[in-house]
Simulated assay, not measured.
Amino acid sequence: MNTRFLLYITIGLMSLTGCAHKNTSTAELLNTYWKLVEIKGTAVAVSDNQREPHMVLNAEQRVAGSDGCNRLMGGYQLSGDSLQFTQMASTRMACLQGASQADLIGVTLPQTARYAIQGEQLELRDASGAVIARFKAVALP
């Protein structure tokens, strides 16, 4: 009897463990706060006393965010998995730290041709299919 009981407990725990590891949640492209974590293969650094690089795309085809130094704004065009940023602009603050990273973000976003979302991660790809930026969905309070 004890062996059978242990077998049932083991099978039950294995079933629960298998379910616990499945991550089927997928963030939505629009109206999600996307925190930039990697740009052109390099991890993103957040400088002291500056905003983290991020973006939010809204349903009115507008994008807003920060490159870590400046505010970003512009438009986007979306069709299937095709994504293009248009009319991008930014403020021009004097940043003691992170200016080169901010410049790289400003140059990279317009190179976007496609996107993919897997779980809570957004990848931006250029026309050749190379990943040029990675973002993580962040829940806002």
Score class of each variant (00 low, 15 high):
85 F>E: 06
90 S>W: 01
100 S>K: 11
139 A>I: 05
61 Q>A: 13
140 L>E: 13
43 A>Y: 03
40 K>S: 14
83 L>P: 04
25 S>H: 14
48 D>T: 08
42 T>V: 14
28 E>F: 04
89 A>W: 07
98 G>M: 03
61 Q>I: 01
23 N>I: 12
57 L>C: 09
68 G>W: 02
29 L>K: 01
78 L>C: 08
48 D>W: 01
66 S>N: 14
137 A>E: 12
127 A>S: 13
138 V>S: 08
69 C>I: 09
72 L>Y: 02
64 A>N: 13
37 V>P: 00
137 A>N: 11
61 Q>D: 15
55 M>C: 05
116 A>Y: 06
5 F>W: 12
98 G>K: 06
50 Q>W: 01
64 A>V: 08
103 D>R: 02
34 W>I: 06
43 A>M: 12
82 S>L: 11
67 D>Q: 00
122 L>G: 07
95 C>G: 07
132 I>A: 00
131 V>D: 09
91 T>M: 11
133 A>V: 05
43 A>N: 14
11 I>M: 14
35 K>N: 10
128 S>K: 10
119 G>C: 04
3 T>C: 06
27 A>S: 09
115 Y>R: 04
77 Q>N: 15
103 D>Q: 12
31 N>M: 03
75 G>C: 06
104 L>F: 01
106 G>D: 07
132 I>T: 11
110 P>A: 09
48 D>F: 05
125 R>T: 12
112 T>M: 04
1 M>S: 13
8 Y>G: 09
53 P>A: 10
116 A>H: 03
96 L>Q: 14
63 V>I: 15
110 P>Y: 10
33 Y>P: 00
50 Q>A: 12
74 G>S: 05
83 L>G: 01
6 L>M: 10
131 V>H: 08
114 R>M: 09
91 T>L: 04
107 V>N: 07
119 G>S: 14
131 V>M: 09
26 T>H: 09
135 F>N: 03
88 M>N: 06
132 I>W: 07
72 L>Q: 03
30 L>M: 14
101 Q>E: 06
10 T>S: 14
1 M>R: 10
77 Q>H: 15
82 S>R: 14
108 T>Y: 01
93 M>V: 00
116 A>L: 04
1 M>D: 15
21 H>L: 15
133 A>C: 04
87 Q>P: 00
57 L>E: 08
99 A>Q: 06
26 T>C: 02
16 L>V: 05
119 G>F: 06
137 A>L: 11
95 C>P: 02
48 D>R: 08
124 L>Q: 05
133 A>S: 00
64 A>Y: 08
43 A>K: 10
11 I>A: 15
107 V>R: 10
81 D>E: 15
109 L>I: 04
93 M>K: 13
92 R>I: 05
141 P>E: 15
7 L>G: 08
45 A>S: 14
18 G>M: 13
141 P>Q: 13
70 N>W: 00
71 R>V: 04
35 K>T: 01
60 E>I: 00
91 T>F: 05
51 R>S: 14
93 M>N: 10
107 V>K: 09
107 V>F: 10
47 S>F: 06
108 T>I: 08
18 G>K: 00
53 P>H: 00
34 W>K: 06
51 R>E: 14
75 G>V: 02
65 G>A: 11
9 I>F: 12
65 G>K: 02
100 S>H: 10
98 G>V: 04
18 G>F: 10
11 I>F: 09
21 H>K: 05
2 N>Y: 11
43 A>D: 13
37 V>A: 04
124 L>T: 01
